[in-house]
Amino acid sequence: MAKSGTFSNLHDWLISEEFTSARQARLHSIYLAWLSLLANPLAFAGFAVVFLLVVVAALAPVIAFHDPFTQDFAIALQAPSSVHWFGTDEFGRDVFSRLIYGARTTLYITILVTVIVAPIGFVIGATAGYLGGWVDVVLMRITDIFLSFPSLVLALAFSAALGPGIENAVIAIALTVWPPIARLARAETLTFRHADFVIAAELQGAGTGRILLRHIVPLCAPSIIVRLTLNMSSIILTAAGLGFLGLGAQPPMAEWGAMAASGRQYLLDAWWLTTVPGIAILTVSLAFNLLGDGLRDIMDPRNG
């Protein structure tokens, strides 16, 4: 492979293990992860789709050339054409534009749930694992209670109690997602709890907070990130399920699950109303799963 001069210089600098700065050491490990992602075609395909989703969501107003909310009954339920790529829905709104804006909703829900769930799951799990004793018992039994409910039913109950809406859907989904993360964090913490390097830090006077944040987090992070990435598809599916049942995003907001639900009535005449958002949900869930599997190979060599 012929690489241009600056690129091969950069490559050599990144691949070299003769580090001259802390920044180079960090970039080196990121670069190695990137190379192994490139070497895994399925994971890279997943990464590409997720990346595309982010770009589409960010540039939604530029990409969507129709307004996703303008209703025009004159053109309701039109089949896909060169003007309306994925047809129009029962209110005459462009399905393609709504799909693009729906990516924003989907991304908003997944990111928000992940951001809420990761620290809560980690703090509860790692504290239980590190401190042990009655703290462990109390925290893990609470986790068990949440785990014993089927997640969609729990999310359904919470969003019904809190009222329909996207923020409440996020809270409801977050309630069902944190327990497995806490379990994972606890299990990981237990394996490092009595490692010599943790004891060395204790004997140098490090407090519980420092040990959890500085020593346990970097070790748990890979498996938690992998788990969260794999979870994203089920978050998307739960959000779509809530939307489908009318408890998630409310009209006229574009949301893939709600779009599929409203298209159900016209399924026989207008297949595109359900099929297009369905394919979008499928593709993105699959992409997150592939990316998660790839990340596991890269970051967590034990499961290779």
Binding site: A22, A195, D196, A200, G205, H215, P218
Partner: peptide, 23 residues
Amino acid sequence: LAKQQLVFQDPFGSIHPRHTIGR
């Protein structure tokens, strides 16, 4: 605690694997 420090038997388990030596 700082008055005495322990050196462990196993040099492979006593240093944090994800910290640089400087860290």
